[in-house]
Amino acid sequence: MPFDPSRTSGSSRAPYYGILAEFATPADLYHACERVRDAGFTRWDAHTPFPVHGLEGAMGLRRSPLPWIVLGMGLLGAALGFVLQWWVHASAYPLVISGKPYFAWPAFVPITFEVGILFAALGAVFGMFGLNRLPMHHHPLFRSKVFERVTDDAFFISIESWDPLFDQSATGKLLESLGARSVEILES
């Protein structure tokens, strides 16, 4: 079905989310992503039922800042764990345990390590949530009927309407020319 910008499900003047294009195979999607990337779009995404190797390169995604969050949280946790033990054992409530000095640093290492790991793991999970703006209770993509197959056997590109290069007619035609099986306009 050829793309017709006037055919939308709602009022054509209402603010809308963007354009969704469906591709038949991972290879089609991969090459389409390369072209969308090269066209200079920035507010867009690809959706697949399974990880497609190298897709982040085809999409021109930068590396995630998540590793730095994890490293920072890990170091912070380790430092906090160590200081906590120093404060308890050597400052706030000094007790002689097994004839060791108050500040018995080797005994602090396992807790320091564990708290470091705990904070790094929390940083990884919640950092990922934050970067992905999760939890998100609804997304305009879910309005689309064909998009339901994204967890099954269909591959999608969505381009958001607030992308500086976005033009309803031209962007839709571009996606169609890249081999999209169907192209539709998404209400917000």
């Binding site: 991972p26 290879a27 991969y30 497609v52 190797h53 190298g54 897709l55 390169g57 085809a58």
Partner: peptide, 8 residues
Amino acid sequence: MSERAVAS
């Protein structure tokens, strides 16, 4: 399967 993997 990226372009490069296929090529190599």
